[in-house]
Design a protein around this nucleic acid. Structure first.
Lengths: 222, 222
DNA sequence: AGCTTTACCTTGGTATACCAAAAAGGTGTA
DNA sequence: TACACCTTTTTGGTATACCAAGGTAAAGCT
């Protein structure tokens, strides 16, 4: 595995893990010195790692002090829209040649997902699929945007216990439409899918909101 | 004016200025210690400022060492596409209520632009207009994306000497279409406009490429 | 001279030291 | 008890010190 070339990267990946696995809860306060002691990395490195995580949206600065970014329903809603715009844009901008060269990889993702069972695996596979769609655009900024949005949504998906094994039928339909070079159909299917997924995600979280809030102060709109 | 609350911000804005004004040329190498001496800010702060500018795309790291991001025609092309996707998405997602509340500001931007003359002013006004469109989405990520794309394109626009005073006629048409709540028309106009602008930008740069490269090593694909 | 080798110096990466501001805690008074 | 005032501690922000890797130039060998 890609071990850390630098101390900053080490601290960064370690912290990202801790945050995504909810070992440090959303909204929780962190101090540079505590992390320094915990990871055995100098405060300088911890600091720049934290700054990186701020760009990724996993960490926020409230006044003086670092907090794990809280789960914000409004932000989630915006992220879903953002991702939808990017993925639809990617589909809309891809050429027959691109589809021809990428379709095999897409089908491979589909078949690989069939045998998935653990949550981690499923989530990763979903991530890969959305990234695959983004890649159709051949646009680094679109890809990075989808990547970042998916990352930011990850904790929320986990909270909502968003397994969705049946979503792969829809994925299959999207790939099929792309294979037939029917971009309109692929766009519509993707839009419907993302719309449904968004509403389900927000719905479940809204429902669990009180419970989750009591349970660990998971929500606050800053 | 908002003077720097912190040394990092000071170094960051100063460096951004120097890069955007081409006082430090694209591709030029920078050392942390040189900047430290130049700005009178400690290397620690300079360093984190540089990291910020890396996320903005104005600075890159090549191996060991910092360089001002070179002007890359392929990157420019991708940025134009990215911006197009976002702005069209913004228009596609805005509601009549949003248009009603924002249209006045849009018209104000148009009338203010009429009396512009200096390049700086025109560029800023164009920036504001695109940002206004992005704001129609009420989506922070879309807005930030357009913001970042516009920033990254700024030096290229300057190199291409992209005054385009007549582009404001097209802007006016877009606002008019929005006012009539004709989103389809507004989308089409915006797409045409951005497409034309992209081709002109790339065309001019392609034409000047040899000249610019000799003149100051402005291009290299890393 | 041409090539290799070695000493030195520059550079980014990291750790530590220092500071001021803000927060926390305690103390005295009304 | 409640509140204001002061002391102490904690915290992020910044500067400096240190290090190892990479590059450069000078010296030495053939």
């Amino acid at each position: 595995m890609g071990k850390p070339a630098t101390q900053v990267q080490h601290a960064e990946t370690k912290l990202r893990q801790l945050i995504l696995n909810m070992n440090i809860r959303p909204g929780e306060r962190m101090t540079e010195r505590h992390i320094e002691g915990m990871l055995g990395v100098s405060r300088t490195s911890v600091r720049t790692a934290l700054l990186h995580l701020v760009n990724e949206g996993l960490v926020s600065q409230q006044g003086r002090g670092w907090i794990v970014s809280p789960i914000d329903l409004d932000e989630i809603s915006q992220l879903c829209t953002y991702r939808k715009i990017l993925e639809l844009g990617a589909i809309g901008h891809c050429t027959p040649a691109i589809i021809r060269s990428d379709i095999a990889q897409g089908e491979q993702l589909l078949s690989a997902a069939a045998s998935m069972t653990a949550y981690e695996e499923c989530d990763q596979a979903g991530y890969d699929f959305h990234l695959w769609i983004a890649t159709l655009s051949r646009n680094d900024f679109v890809i990075q945007g989808v990547e970042n949005a998916t990352l930011r949504l990850r904790r929320a998906r986990w909270l909502a216990d968003d397994h969705n094994r049946n979503e792969w039928d829809e994925h299959r339909a999207i790939v099929a439409a792309l294979k037939e070079a029917d971009l309109t159909k692929a766009s519509r299917l993707t839009e419907d899918f993302l719309q449904r997924k968004r509403q389900k995600l927000l719905g479940v979280l809204q429902e669990k909101k009180k419970l989750l809030t009591e349970q660990g102060a998971l929500f606050f709109p800053v």
